[in-house]
Simulated assay, not measured.
Amino acid sequence: MRLRRPNPGPPPPPAVGAVLAEGEGVHVRLGGRSVLVGVDIVARGGEVLALVGPNGAGKSTLLAALAGDVAPGGGVVRVFGRPATEWSARELALRRAVLPQSAALSFPFTVADVVEMGRAPYGGADPDEDELAVAEAMAATEVTAFAERSFGALSGGERARVALARVLAQRAPVLLLDEPTAALDLRHQELVLRLCRQRARAGDAVVVVLHDLALAAAYAHRVAILRAGRVAADGPPAEVFEERLLSEVYDQPVEVFPHPRTGVAVVAPRRSP
């Protein structure tokens, strides 16, 4: 007689400062090219970690490696202290939620249907909790008003917010977000980063790929600057957003100065008058 393995439940709430996801000496080759070379990265509960750097630096690949979606050719990725490869797909989904750069669906799902997909790892064990999680995620991302509309009929920015709502509904303690603000207007860019901060305050670890250095400076507790598959700097924005380093990494002269009201670092291209 074979005993059936019970379905794993979600992990207990993480402690602030606990290492929830990490990469140690991560190497990844794609298409015969080294995309990540010996990367060390740590995502802790209670903080927003922004991954920044020029196109092709390896940001999205690093995020996918942390998610367990890309297997490193060298080094190890751990989620909740255990190699990502040792978790089942469902166990991993209960611990980390992933927002890819783009969301495309071939079937005419409604907005509510898409957000409900975030509850799949729970297997319908608590319908009331599922309903509450979906409703809260849709309200937080301001998509409730078009819950019954077809996902395919939405604008790019609306789709991006619905995709984020799906991730929030998953209620995993590690959020891995790949350019969540790329298609959004100014108001909703700020909304998304405020949500990231809220999740961090609740004890979650948030790793977000950003191109907007001003958003990274304003909302990230820590920034990892990637260059050619390596981490060029890792630390608080006020420490790593340095003119010489950023100018070298982006191959573009920049200037960094404090915001006159908040004191947060502002990064801008250096232009001739």
Rank of each mutant, 00 (worst) to 15 (best):
R2H: 15
R2W: 15
L3P: 10
R5D: 15
N7M: 15
P11K: 07
P14Q: 06
P14G: 05
A15N: 13
G17Y: 05
A21H: 02
E24V: 07
V26A: 12
V28A: 06
V28F: 08
L30R: 07
G32N: 01
R33I: 03
R33Q: 12
V35H: 03
V39Q: 03
A43Q: 00
L49G: 08
A50S: 06
N55A: 02
A57M: 03
T61D: 01
T61E: 06
G68H: 02
D69S: 04
V70E: 10
V70D: 08
P72T: 02
G73C: 07
V76P: 03
V76T: 10
R78L: 00
W87T: 00
A89L: 13
E91R: 02
R96N: 11
A97M: 11
L99G: 13
Q101T: 13
A103W: 13
A103N: 10
A104P: 00
A104C: 05
S106I: 12
V111E: 13
A112C: 06
D113T: 10
V115G: 09
E116Q: 14
P121L: 07
Y122I: 13
G124C: 09
D126R: 08
D128V: 14
D128S: 12
E136L: 15
A137C: 11
A137K: 06
A140S: 11
T141M: 04
A145M: 10
A145W: 14
E148D: 15
E148K: 07
G152S: 13
G152I: 05
L154N: 09
L154V: 04
S155I: 02
S155R: 01
G156M: 08
G157R: 03
R159D: 14
R159I: 09
R161F: 09
V162Q: 08
L164F: 07
L164I: 09
L164R: 05
V167I: 09
L168S: 08
R171L: 01
A172L: 12
L175K: 12
A182D: 10
A183C: 09
L186E: 01
E190K: 00
V192L: 05
A200Q: 10
G203W: 06
G203E: 12
V208Q: 01
H211A: 02
H211M: 03
L213M: 11
A214L: 09
V223W: 01
A228R: 12
G229A: 01
G229M: 00
E239G: 07
E239D: 14
V240Y: 04
Q252D: 10
V254N: 10
G263W: 07
A265L: 09
V267W: 02
V267Y: 04
A268L: 11
